[in-house]
């Protein structure tokens, strides 16, 4: 219970901090730090629940697919430049963004990830990599500012950061496949 309160507290503390400062005025802070932090807190909260055998989970979140989909669509929504811009200029929208990053991205991922298997995780990882590459490319090449409040140079910098992150994550995901891990191999159960 204390752990759960801790992660909720962390998310709240960040949200208060971000609202009262100009932290999210930087595009890199917004996308790479704020999103990651809120998702991580939600993830840790979600993974602290053991709901795999709960009837509601069995009914609605088979192999964690529903949770992963909710998280994917929510994250994709908040990557749309217009919504990013609105969140950066309107405190209420900013709060909704923080809340949804925590509860609709991090939390469902935390609840679902342990239930998912190799194929689902692999699919999510590939989609994450391709999304980072697409966004990075778009931010890098866009001749105009996608969000009026962020400068063009910062946008390009974020593009490079996302592309670098994609490369780093690719290596991170590939490494375990080249290392023999019998324990991991046992977890590779068949099924979607």
């Amino acid at each position: 219970m204390i752990e759960r309160i801790f992660w909720i507290f962390c998310a709240l503390a960040y949200s208060l901090f971000a609202i009262n400062t100009n932290f999210e005025a930087s595009m890199i802070n917004n996308v790479l730090i704020a999103y990651t932090l809120l998702i991580y807190c939600g993830w840790k909260l979600g993974s602290s629940f053991d709901i795999e055998q709960h009837w509601l989970n069995k009914l609605s979140n088979y192999k964690g697919i529903a949770g992963v989909l909710i998280a994917s669509f929510t994250l994709a929504f908040w990557m749309i430049p217009n919504w990013m811009e609105l969140a950066a200029s309107n405190t209420q929208i900013q709060l909704i963004k923080h809340f949804s990053m925590f509860t609709l991205v991090g939390l469902p991922l935390g609840l679902s990830w342990s239930q998912s298997n190799f194929v689902i995780r692999g699919f999510v990882k590939i989609e994450l990599l391709s999304m980072l590459l697409r966004l990075g490319w778009i931010y890098l090449i866009s001749p105009t500012r996608l969000c009026n409040i962020y400068s063009l140079s910062e946008q390009a910098l974020l593009g490079k950061a996302l592309l670098s992150l994609a490369v780093a994550l690719t290596l991170y995901y590939l490494y375990p496949l080249f290392v023999d891990q019998n324990d991991r191999a046992k977890k590779l159960t068949p099924g979607l």
Partner: peptide, 10 residues
């Protein structure tokens, strides 16, 4: 990939 890695480990 899953099926092969399960049998061969890496």
């Amino acid at each position: 990939a899953r099926a092969i890695l399960k049998e061969y480990g890496s």
